[in-house]
């Protein structure tokens, strides 16, 4: 595989390659995100395969992950970005890949990440008046039943 990725991050401050083997992962600082995504799309990553988030309460951040796929070269690339746990706001990628609109709604629904520039930021699965963000590690709900506890 070519090393265009190392050239790609060379000019960007705070960007680094993560040690994962496959797919290759790229950690970007928040300000460089939208510009890099535009550049990556121009590189041929025409499919936004998936978007998810991982909660990290010790590090006080939520890591967003985008999985890009190129139908020309068949390459997969993971792009990560860390957001503060309080008031996480990320730019919406809706203009680049229309599917981002709904993937971002899912992450907003389950993690409470807000997206600036999103046309329709609503909860995807839960009711509009649901309180809390269920997939965060500190989510508490008296409805949840755990084994061994009444």
């Amino acid at each position: 595989m070519s090393d265009w990725l190392e050239d790609f991050i060379a000019g960007k401050e705070g960007a680094e390659l993560l040690a994962d083997d496959r797919p290759r992962s790229l950690l970007l600082p928040l300000p460089a995100l939208i510009g890099s995504m535009q550049a990556l799309k121009a590189q041929g990553f025409d499919m936004l395969n998936d978007h998810m988030a991982v909660d990290n309460p010790e590090g006080e951040h939520i890591r967003l992950l985008w999985l890009l796929c190129s139908t020309e070269s068949g390459e997969l690339l993971r792009v990560c970005c860390d957001l503060p746990r309080q008031q996480p706001v990320a730019p919406s990628l809706n203009a680049l890949w229309p599917v981002a609109e709904w993937q971002e709604r899912e992450v907003y629904d389950l993690f409470g990440v807000l997206y600036s520039g999103h046309p329709d930021l609503r909860r995807l699965f839960l009711e509009d008046d649901w309180e809390g963000w269920p997939l965060r590690k500190d989510y508490e709900d008296s409805f949840i039943l755990e084994p061994g506890k009444p």
Partner: peptide
Amino acid sequence: SGGPFIYHSYSSLR
């Protein structure tokens, strides 16, 4: 009873 989704689910009815 809730079946496989009985524990740790915030939305499945039991």
